[in-house]
């Protein structure tokens, strides 16, 4: 279990189980079911796009050791590789190839796999489509892990602050305003620098900054819900506090969490691109590809496919998420969210 790839596999399984669970829950609840149908009707294309990214990311997260060494890479046989790694094993060229080219881009030496690179290759001859697909996992990992860190903690602190009030609220509010007073980008940078470079570290850093948003929202909303008549009634009937939180507060927060999650997601992925430029991004992200491609664009003739591919992959994902995010907000809740921000 000490191997990272085993954890990665477990996470995939957990996600699939979780997805089935969520789907069932939605089916049971008439409101959610209607909302999701509405969403599908409104934004089918964007949803399909997001689903595609998800599938690629999940497929790339399943890894195992074994299989033959390919393309003269003797170390690979001892490393955990995903189906995507295996699919592209041995597609290595020596250097740049333009999309579908038959010969090398500079110098025109014959390629080992002519015409087999729909998006071309990078300077070390790695297939650009391969790098692009690998990037999907990184992007979703950033958004996903970050939210996984931020949302539960935010709920814990936000709800207890809003529900209990008093000293607890003061403490949570103090932490929130402290974190919020630091410029977000600087805070992320400071966290990554202190924690060290790496995927998890970047996610934690981004998680801390987005925690503030989630926390502020759930605190404010809990305040309001606490004063609602049905909560007051439940209390008067002697329902326990814990039960109130779980039966009345949390369910009523869920749609806000979904909306905030989707709206935060795109910001997280874009932030990672910025971190990549600063040299503290996540290995293999589209941000790093774009950063690298800056120089390639200046070549004569320019190597344009790396930048274009990574730029479009990033743009399409963010655009789809933004579009879906707006739609979800319209479907689930057109008003409350803004009041708390």
């Amino acid at each position: 279990m000490n191997e990272p790839w085993m954890i990665s596999n477990l996470v995939v399984v957990a996600m699939l189980v979780g997805a089935v669970g969520v789907a069932r829950a939605i089916r049971r609840d008439r409101l959610w079911l209607e909302a999701s149908r509405d969403l599908v009707r409104r934004r089918p294309v964007a949803l399909v796009v997001i689903a595609l990214y998800l599938v690629v990311a999940l497929v790339d997260s399943v890894r195992w050791v074994g299989g033959a060494a390919v393309g003269g890479d003797a170390v690979a046989a001892h490393e955990a590789r995903s189906p995507i790694d295996r699919l592209f094993a041995g597609s290595q060229e020596k250097s740049y190839s333009a999309p579908f080219a038959k010969v090398e881009f500079y110098g025109g030496a014959p390629l080992e796999h002519p015409g087999k690179h729909p998006l071309g290759t990078d300077v070390l001859g790695r297939d650009c489509l391969y790098l692009l697909l690998k990037g999907a996992r990184v992007a979703l990992l950033i958004g996903g892990v970050t939210s996984l860190i931020a949302i539960p903690l935010a709920l814990l602190f936000g709800v207890s602050a809003g529900f209990v009030g008093g000293k607890v609220d003061d403490a949570v509010f103090f932490v929130m305003s402290t974190l919020a007073s630091m410029p977000a980008l600087l805070l992320v940078i400071a966290l990554v620098m202190a924690l060290g470079r790496g995927t998890l570290q970047v996610c934690i850093a981004l998680g801390v900054t987005s925690w503030v948003n989630f926390c502020r929202m759930s605190r404010g909303e809990t305040f309001k819900l606490r004063e609602m008549e049905y909560v007051q009634a439940a209390r008067a009937l002697g329902v326990s506090e814990v039960r109130i939180v779980f039966r009345h507060i949390l369910p009523n927060l869920s749609h806000l969490i979904v909306i905030t999650f989707v709206l935060t997601f795109s910001g997280l992925v874009l932030s990672e691109a910025v971190l990549s430029f600063l040299g503290i991004g996540v290995q293999g992200s589209w941000g790093q590809m774009i950063d690298r491609a800056r120089d390639e664009l200046a070549r004569e003739p320019a190597v344009w496919w790396n930048l274009t591919a990574a730029g479009i992959a990033l743009l399409v994902l963010i655009l789809a998420v933004n579009v879906v995010g707006d739609a979800i907000r319209d479907v689930l809740d057109p008003r409350t969210l803004r009041e708390n921000q």
Binding site: G72, D73, A74, V75, A76, H78, D122, V123, L124, G279, Q288, D291, R292, D295
Partner: peptide, 23 residues
């Protein structure tokens, strides 16, 4: 050299050594 270009330049050596199984 932390530049992306520098990393690639060194990655070249690393890739060559991978061919004989050194990580």
């Amino acid at each position: 050299d932390t530049t992306v270009d520098g990393i690639l330049r060194n990655q070249f050596f690393v890739d060559e050594w991978r061919q004989i199984g050194l990580d």
